[in-house]
């Protein structure tokens, strides 16, 4: 009893200088880059309890939205590099430099775990007069400007997928209708407000299965076992292969210069957590490919994503800066 009181008292006096050796000695704060209910939020909230068990400390999750995730990133990098503040984000920061949103990206942080990657897919409203990529492209060329394609802003998944498509198919003219997120856009697709939408497989799968929209092309090199009948886009446009596989991802990061011991403990905890069968089945059902990578492997993945996307965006003409300014190599 007495010992504990002394313990509390010494903690009060010495607490600011916690030694890293006994990491984690207090709650960890997890900053989720996107809002409650979104895919990033769902993924992070479903892995955190497993990681908590491995770490033996609570992870308090907080959603900090805004500026396509740049605000959360700025917040985490403004904190001490002690491993007590985690950034739980999606792919967006890899485009910050070329879009002029921030001068740091994930390559300037330490990857704890890149958890999983999604696959993009083209879906169309049910009564659209095309059923696959070839028919769609023919129709769009024959009726310039008539096809309404949902988009989620510059640097979003749709803009990059469309940039890939336009690099292969010249003179594609369509009307782009912006939505703030693939959820609202897919809703609009079911109400016939838009005709086609490139979105992540997980967001569309239940709607496609129920016959509320049709899948016209998978942006990957091979078919996906969740939607076996849908042809990969490389069958129509073989040169797309140079960009693929490509897809949005989720990951956990800490600030640069975080003590090695804390980084290792976090990496181990998340690595083990990602093997949890509940987590795996959740990710598979939503059509995500589990990566569960850290260290050099994660860095290689992140750099690859950054160079493909940055150069695509730059060549499509909506980047603020050239990737060359940041020494981002061509893919």
């Amino acid at each position: 009893m007495k010992k504990h009181i002394i313990g509390v008292l010494t903690a009060i006096t010495l607490s600011t200088s916690t030694v890293a050796a006994d990491y984690p000695s207090k709650d960890i704060q997890g900053i989720i880059q996107w809002g409650a209910g979104g895919s990033t939020d769902t993924v992070m909230r479903s892995i955190s309890p497993h990681a908590e068990k491995e770490l033996g400390a609570d992870i308090i999750l907080t959603n900090k939205t805004g500026g396509v995730g740049a605000i959360a990133m700025k917040y985490v990098n403004g904190k001490k590099a002690d491993g007590y503040t985690l950034l739980m984000g999606a792919e967006n920061p890899q485009m910050y430099k070329v879009l002029g949103l921030s001068d740091i990206d994930y390559n300037d942080m330490i990857a704890i775990n890149v958890l999983a990657r999604g696959t993009p897919i083209f879906v169309a409203r049910n009564d659209a007069p095309y059923n696959n990529m070839q028919e769609f492209l023919d129709y769009a060329k024959a009726n310039p400007g008539e096809v309404k394609i949902g988009s989620t802003g510059k640097g979003g998944l749709t803009s990059i997928v469309m940039a890939m498509l336009e690099s292969q198919v010249k003179d594609l003219k369509y009307t782009s209708i912006p939505y703030n997120g693939d959820g609202p856009a897919l809703t609009a697709l079911q109400g016939d407000a838009i005709d086609v939408m490139p979105a992540v497989l997980g967001a569309t799968i239940e709607h496609v299965k129920a016959g509320r929209m049709k899948a016209i092309g998978l942006v990957d090199v091979e078919a996906n076992k969740l939607l076996p009948g849908v042809a990969p886009i490389t069958e129509t446009l073989p040169n797309m292969e140079s960009y693929l596989p490509w897809g949005p991802f989720f990951g956990v990061f800490v600030k640069k210069d975080t003590p090695k011991d804390a980084v290792e403990k976090l990496q181990n905890a998340f690595h083990k957590a990602a093997f949890n069968p509940d987590f795996i089945s959740l990710m598979e059902k939503r059509g995500f490919t589990i990566l569960n990578i850290a260290g050099e492997e994660a860095e290689y993945f992140l750099s690859g994503y950054r160079s493909t996307s940055s150069w695509l965006v730059h060549e499509a003409g909506f980047a603020k800066h050239s990737p060359a300014d940041f020494n981002i190599p061509k893919p």
Partner: peptide, 25 residues
């Protein structure tokens, strides 16, 4: 349909996913 009517039902959809259900049509 698995389409949230507001911000709270969007979180409910996430909750159903985590509990192994497939909210959707």
């Amino acid at each position: 349909l698995g389409i949230p009517g507001d911000a709270v039902t969007a979180v409910f959809i996430g909750a159903l996913f985590i509990h192994g259900l497939n909210p959707g049509p």
